[in-house]
Simulated assay, not measured.
Amino acid sequence: MPKLKTNRSAAKRFKLTGSGKIARRRQGLRHILTKKNAKRKRRLGQGALVDSANEPAVKRMVPKATLKK
């Protein structure tokens, strides 16, 4: 079986946590911030985990060797 190619855009967006889960950033904090309240912007600034339904897809795009800790 040939080596898997890493999706480089996905490799830059996801990283592995210490417990082996996949971390991601939240969307919606780039522009049009005036209509969003402070609580919402604060929450968007915090990271999140990839949902279990999407984990297999992310792992296919980014093989384990490339996921950074």
Results as ranks from 00 to 15, higher is better:
residue 25 R to A: 10
residue 57 A to I: 14
residue 7 N to K: 11
residue 53 A to Y: 02
residue 8 R to A: 05
residue 47 G to K: 02
residue 21 K to R: 15
residue 42 R to F: 02
residue 8 R to Q: 10
residue 54 N to K: 03
residue 5 K to I: 04
residue 9 S to M: 05
residue 43 R to Y: 03
residue 68 K to T: 15
residue 23 A to C: 14
residue 31 H to V: 12
residue 6 T to G: 00
residue 64 K to E: 09
residue 44 L to D: 07
residue 55 E to N: 01
residue 54 N to P: 00
residue 69 K to E: 12
residue 33 L to N: 15
residue 47 G to T: 14
residue 7 N to Y: 01
residue 4 L to I: 11
residue 40 R to D: 10
residue 57 A to P: 00
residue 64 K to D: 12
residue 4 L to Y: 05
residue 18 G to H: 03
residue 32 I to N: 15
residue 6 T to Y: 00
residue 46 Q to V: 04
residue 19 S to Y: 05
residue 26 R to N: 14
residue 38 A to Q: 14
residue 22 I to P: 12
residue 42 R to T: 09
residue 69 K to L: 14
residue 4 L to Q: 15
residue 44 L to K: 07
residue 49 L to N: 05
residue 47 G to P: 02
residue 36 K to L: 14
residue 18 G to V: 07
residue 30 R to S: 12
residue 65 A to Y: 01
residue 20 G to T: 13
residue 21 K to A: 15
residue 11 A to F: 01
residue 1 M to S: 09
residue 18 G to T: 12
residue 37 N to D: 15
residue 1 M to N: 04
residue 69 K to C: 03
residue 31 H to L: 10
residue 43 R to D: 07
residue 4 L to V: 13
residue 60 R to K: 13
residue 25 R to T: 13
residue 13 R to M: 14
residue 35 K to S: 08
residue 57 A to Q: 09
residue 50 V to F: 00
residue 63 P to F: 04
residue 30 R to A: 12
residue 44 L to H: 01
residue 29 L to T: 13
residue 44 L to R: 09
residue 25 R to L: 08
residue 27 Q to M: 09
residue 29 L to C: 07
residue 66 T to H: 03
residue 5 K to G: 02
residue 15 K to C: 06
residue 30 R to P: 01
residue 41 K to V: 08
residue 48 A to E: 13
residue 16 L to A: 11
residue 66 T to G: 00
residue 28 G to E: 10
residue 10 A to W: 04
residue 39 K to L: 08
residue 3 K to R: 10
residue 49 L to D: 06
residue 6 T to W: 00
residue 16 L to P: 08
residue 38 A to T: 14
residue 47 G to S: 11
residue 22 I to D: 13
residue 67 L to Q: 15
residue 31 H to C: 07
residue 36 K to A: 05
residue 59 K to A: 07
residue 67 L to Y: 05
residue 40 R to P: 01
residue 34 T to G: 02
residue 20 G to C: 06
residue 54 N to A: 09
residue 32 I to V: 12
residue 3 K to H: 04
residue 58 V to G: 01
residue 37 N to Y: 01
residue 27 Q to H: 07
residue 62 V to R: 07
residue 24 R to V: 11
residue 3 K to D: 10
residue 7 N to R: 08
residue 12 K to R: 15
residue 55 E to M: 04
residue 51 D to K: 06
residue 15 K to L: 03
residue 53 A to M: 06
residue 11 A to V: 10
residue 25 R to C: 06
residue 24 R to Q: 12
residue 6 T to I: 15
